[in-house]
Design a binder for these strands. Sequence first.
RNA 1: GCGGAGGUUGCCGAGCGGACAAAGGCGCUGGCUUGAGGGGUCAGUCCCGUAGGGGUUCGGGGGUUCGAAUCCCCCCCUCCGCACCA
Length: 979
Amino acid sequence: MGIDAIEVEKKWQRRWQHHKIYEAHVRDDAPKFYVNVAYPYPSGAMHVGHGRTYTVPDVIARFQRMKGRNVLFPMAFHVTGAPVIGIARRIAKNDPDAIRLYRDLYKVPEETLKKFSDPYEIVSYFSNEYKEVMDALGYSIDWRRRFTTVDQHYKKFIEWQFLKLRERGYVVKGEHPIRYCPSCKNPVGDHDLLAGEGASINEFVLLKFVLEGEELILPTATLRPETVFGVTNLWINDEASYVIAKVKRGSGEFERWLVSEPAAEKLKNQGYEVEVEGRVGGSDFVDRQALNVVDGRTVKILPASFVDPDFATGVVMSVPAHAPFDFAALRDLHRQGKYLNVLPIPIIEIEGYGEIPAETVVMRMGIENQNDKRLEDATTELYTAEFNKGRMKVDAMGLAGVSVKDARETVKETLLADGKAALMYEFSERPVVCRCNTPVVISVLKDQWFLDYSDEAWKDQVRACLSRMNVVPPEIFAEFKQVVEWLREWACTRRIGLGTNLPWDKEWIIEPLSDSTIYMAYYTISYKLRELRPEILEPEVFDYIFLGASLPEEKRKKLSNEELRLLDEMRREFLYWYPYDYRLSARDLVGNHLTFQLFHHVAIFPENLWPRGMVVFGMATLQGRKMSSSKGNVVLLKDAIEKYGADAVRMFLIGAAEPWQDFDWRDELVFSTRRQIERFLSFANEVIDMECAVDFRKSLKEAKREIELKSIDRWLLSKLQRHVKEVNEALENFQCRRALQHAYYEIDGDLRWYRKRTSIEREGAKWILKKLLHVWVRLLAPFIPHVCEEVWERWGFSEREGYVSLAPFPEVDETLVDKKAEAAEELIEWVCDDISEILRVINVKPQKIILYVTPEWKRRAFSKILNEVKAGKGLREVMPIVMRAEEMRLRGKEAADFVRKAVELIKDKGMEKKDFFEIDEKKLFLEEKEFFEREFSCEFKIYEAEELEGLSGDERKKLDPQGKSKAAMPTRPAIFVVA
RNA sequence: GCGGAGGUUGCCGAGCGGACAAAGGCGCUGGCUUGAGGGGUCAGUCCCGUAGGGGUUCGGGGGUUCGAAUCCCCCCCUCCGCACCA
């Protein structure tokens, strides 16, 4: 094929398209099969990692189609979201990285690139490229259903979806802290960061201590509000500057707060109204008293250098019994002889940490003072330990004996409700810097809309749905369950990005993961929906199509008969295809998309339309390194196709690993895959050109009357049936690699053995090979459809029977299964192996090889032994049973040795686990004498051990000079090599 | 930290309680094939062995079992999620 490969592939793609064979129509004469895969975000070129994601469903779709199912395999493009806007902006600014990526790697023509300052141009260009590449790979997609997520019709559908969710009470309003770049005026995701990618946002509780004698609140920030009962003093950095500010939150009253300067700024970002009154020094407050509003005690404000004014509020409450930092700082003061009357107040009990846990940890670690770096570790250790195992020792709020975990929640909620506390957010680590080099802040979005995935009733439905689904691979099931438990409120609206506006609050755009949850339903109607004007697509229209609600009379009046007819058709089509059978997506989407879509399905559709199955993909690496477009470490699919041809790319992608496993793209392996395809093609051509008088479609029985068929012939067909069975089973379970292993490599291996064993010039062999090829080409069609169509055509089937892509997939033909032929073949193989090993060890060129077939008495004993072993008996039990026989006892030790060896042999070859066939070994070896002689290039003699027994010593010596015949076993002749 | 997956012979990667020195591929070695612009084919590729045998292996350590790469426990290491992002 070589150079012509691409042309051949193009030819078939054109023909498939011309005959529209992949367009899926509602049909009542065949069971439907609906497989779909997460649609791509076309912001760049397709690489081979994407290739696998879409090749797997294509192989499955092709297989199911050949199995006679009516298959729907659609595709669309996800263009909602913000990334493409950033890309457009960077290209507009001539950002060198962006230009390099798009011009040099993705090879976007200069003219087109100029238009890329418009994000729509980018997605439109790459959606077209995606389609071209998918076509070039021969995907059997019904392209009529293609859409993008910013089409007017689709937006109407999304509006409907959100109105439904809101009706069900799943869309709620709230506040949400996000990372925000003040310079870009945008929320920033992980990939937008220069530093601080691992930083998470921690929620601090601000406890409102009140400065004695003044209406001034000291908001101490803590992650551990439950320790407020153990406060002995407050800390303030006496060298830092603070501000006094009027602070207000929402509809509350203004309060006067003392916070560090940076903190005032942060509070502003986080939705507080802040009016700074004036600056003060931290030292101004040292030694003053503050009221703990929780327990009414008054504590002193002390100076501490570890207090970072740039972290949280810059005011800290001190719990020396449970906070290593506080303990160390207090100890520093004590060492100076100061504040000796301030002593730790333990309020949490925890085994193994003594009366004052912070002291225990600080002493054990040998921490020197409050600036000791190891205090971080000490804190982590103690916080974790107390959180997991600690119990409260205070009586207030009914906390006595309550776990720290629960107490924290209680205290926080109670104090927030009483107005004695407030919330503030801080990064878990710093610095966090935007790609534009500006420090990132935390911003609290008000009036943010959330999907309330924490709703228990909703979760219950998802759990129910999940428990009935086929999840591939099954191991991933646990992960899904976990995700359902984890999921909380999901902020489902954005300020920027492409997408659909929230129908009842147009300021917001629906977030891209949220608008991609039930579009699998949309595929079923997309091509018909397009015939309607978008403006008539009000919610009741979708209620009608998807939920079967009746159409309100006034709406009905506004529609033409044609439009009403279309609505009916869509309703019918939706019900025909839904629920979908399988959805495929990448593993990293388990934590969001794949689970979200379950939530949305159960929220909107009735139970009988809930998803039935999911398949989760592994990732792709390139020569062992993670594939990444931005790092240039990718192989573009279009390049790969050009280089190796679509079939080779497909076959490699499928054979490299099972779908859910990670796979590695390696050029040399793809190349060798191409050679394998060529080998298949030349074999096919060879077989097609063979002249055989007997029609290969005749049954074995019929054929036997006309041509001679050997055991090896029946063996080949029998093995083929096993592979057919494997392929069918594997593909039903998405084990594409296993399927290909049998569909190609195992059959190929059998053919090698077959060619070695027999001449294919024989009439019987030709018949057998034609019969095999007729199955083989169909078995391979889902994997390498182009080559298979080519073979099918060359053989003349295309004209008579149409495309191989639509031919019936091979099923097991039980009449061709011949276990005895398989057993005989196995025996021959063992003999060859044994001879080879002997030859290798003694390293001589053989003149003659003699095989001694086991004597009758061994054969009789062997089948008895085999039965006993099959019944689970061990040597100890078998021995007496077998030795009971007269002929055995007469032979004494020789017989006993034989029993022992036989048991070993049986276990060694696993004979007790399969059907065993007694084979007339002498007859078999005589038949195959020529083969042995050819194989080992020397003369072969075959004797039955019994023949020797009657002979005189001399004659016997002649035939068996070394007495090897004694070693003969059933299934294992003794061998003597004459050098 | 939490949760998930995994560590197999030079490499990739099967196997997941007996047929395992362990499929297949790649790489390497050798034979055959006049075969040339990443060639075809056969064989070998843990160690020892002049007779089909034996020895040591499947991240480390311990255990269960007649028997473990496969089951259990502990440890070490790697990868992937943890959200506002496709």
